[in-house]
C-alpha cells in the first residue's frame, strides 16, 4: 500500500467524519417542536432547588441517572485498581 493510498484513505476518512459531525450540529433544523418535557424543565427548575438548570436536572429530576453514573464511575475505578493488585508473591510482568 503506497503512501499515496494511505493519504487518500485518511483524507476520505476525515471527510466522512466531518460530514457526520456537521450533520450532528443540525443548525438549520429550526422547526424543532418544543416537547412538553423541555417546557416543564424550563418552567419548574427553580422549585427543584437550584438556579442552575443543569444542576437541578442532574441532581433532582434525573438523580437516578446520576446515581447510575456514580456507580459506573465507581465500578470502573474499582475494576482498574483490582487489576493492579498482586497475587501473593506473584511478580507483575
Amino acid at each position: 500500500m503506497k503512501a499515496v493510498h494511505k493519504n487518500i484513505l485518511t483524507l476520505f476518512l476525515l471527510l466522512t467524519i466531518a460530514v457526520i459531525l456537521l450533520h450532528g450540529l443540525d443548525l438549520e433544523h429550526e422547526d424543532k417542536q418544543e416537547s412538553p418535557l423541555h417546557m416543564y424543565y424550563l418552567e419548574t427548575y427553580e422549585e427543584a432547588g437550584s438556579i442552575n438548570l443543569v444542576e437541578s436536572i442532574l441532581l433532582n429530576y434525573r438523580a437516578y441517572d446520576t446515581f447510575g453514573e456514580v456507580m459506573v464511575l465507581y465500578v470502573s475505578i474499582a475494576g482498574i485498581l483490582i487489576l493492579s493488585e498482586q497475587k501473593k508473591g506473584g511478580e507483575k510482568d
Binding site: 427543584a48 432547588g49 444542576e55 433532582n60
Partner: peptide, 12 residues
C-alpha cells in the same frame, strides 16, 4: 430548598 442538591453535590 437546595440542601439535598448540595448534599448530593458534595457526595459526587
Amino acid at each position: 430548598n437546595s440542601f439535598m442538591l448540595i448534599l448530593l453535590d458534595i457526595v459526587v
